[in-house]
């Protein structure tokens, strides 16, 4: 039975890692609900295990995207200054909320917040690549630009960052959400990089993956301290997520921006409704 359970957990993680890698969201939004709803894993333990798989997912995808030069390392490392403190706040809130019975309220509020971001994401479906934003003073001073070779367009695409300050604010929020729910926070990271900074969606997705591991490591530090990490549960999930996310990185470069967003938007909808239902029905 132990072997069967290990294989089941690994298979779940393969699917979550594949979806998370393609959408730049880390897979936690798939994994946490499955663990809590279908396997009856207590929410805090699911958060701890998920946070560890997020590190594996981000590392697998991150290494490939860095080498393919899709990731903007400069943007990623600068914005980690905002996500890491956010993850500390989020993980601390998880511990407090779990001990106070307030998790359901947080889930519903987050679901509503994410639904509110959908119209903006959908309105840019036709942009291929997105229209370049006007760089602000920080973007110029910090040289938040770059280029990548788009295999789908068969040409090099140059880009530069737009609104830097909103991106930092959104990234702090992404860190909080990552720490709170054991997810990558990639939903908000991609929105910050894509909508606020105006990076091409493939660069935003790759840079988000690059950042997710560091954000998750910050959250894990606190979750381990609070006793919310179980190695026997986490180990098969980590191994499975590595396989799934690697498969995702092989698929992503050949897709168009529109295709990547078409994957991303339905997942965002599922995430939002999943959170609301879990909160309202008390699944957390």
């Amino acid at each position: 039975m132990f072997l069967e359970l290990v294989l089941l957990l690994a298979a779940i993680a393969v699917a979550a890692g594949l979806v998370g890698s393609l959408a730049g969201i880390g897979g936690g939004l798939v994994l946490v609900p499955v663990l809590v709803v279908f396997l009856q894993v207590p929410f805090p333990e699911a958060v701890g295990a998920s946070a560890l798989t997020i590190i594996a997912t981000s590392t697998t995808a991150g290494a490939t995207y860095v080498e393919d030069r899709l990731t903007n390392v400069r943007v990623g490392m600068l914005l980690e200054v905002a996500t890491v403190p956010g993850a500390f706040v989020g993980a601390a809130l998880t511990i407090v909320a779990t001990r106070s019975g307030l998790t359901a309220v947080l889930l519903v509020a987050l679901g509503v917040l994410l639904l509110a971001t959908l119209p903006g994401a959908l309105s840019r479906l036709r942009a291929e690549p997105p229209a370049p934003p006007t760089p602000d003073d920080l973007s110029r001073r910090w040289r938040l630009g770059g280029s990548y070779f788009d295999r789908q367009l068969h040409r090099s695409v140059e880009y530069h960052g737009g609104r830097t300050r909103p991106a930092f604010g959104i990234m702090f929020g992404a860190g909080i959400i990552a720490g709170l729910f054991g997810i990558g926070g990639g939903v908000l990271k991609v929105l910050a990089l894509d909508r606020a900074l105006g990076l091409p969606v493939k660069v935003a997705t790759a840079t988000s993956n690059f950042m997710i591991g560091v954000t998750a490591a910050a959250g894990v530090a606190l979750l381990v301290g609070a006793g919310y990490v179980d190695p026997v549960l986490a180990a098969p999930l980590v191994v499975g997520s590595v396989v799934g996310s690697y498969a995702g990185t092989r698929i992503l470069p050949g897709l168009s921006n529109r295709s990547v967003r078409l994957v991303f938007v339905p997942i965002l909808v599922a995430f939002a409704f999943g959170l609301i239902f879990r909160g309202v029905l008390g699944w957390a």
């Binding site: 290494a63 490939t64 860095v66 080498e67 030069r69 899709l70 990731t71 903007n72 390392v73 400069r74 943007v75 990623g76 490392m77 110029r140 040289r143 938040l144 630009g145 770059g146 280029s147 990548y148 070779f149 090099s156 140059e158 880009y159 530069h160």
Partner: peptide, 20 residues
């Protein structure tokens, strides 16, 4: 900030390779 060759930000190709 927008070089004509693929750029991952500002790290050299060898540094990005070693980071990977």
């Amino acid at each position: 900030a927008t070089p004509s060759v693929a750029s991952s930000g500002s790290l050299s190709p060898s540094a990005t390779h070693r980071m990977a």
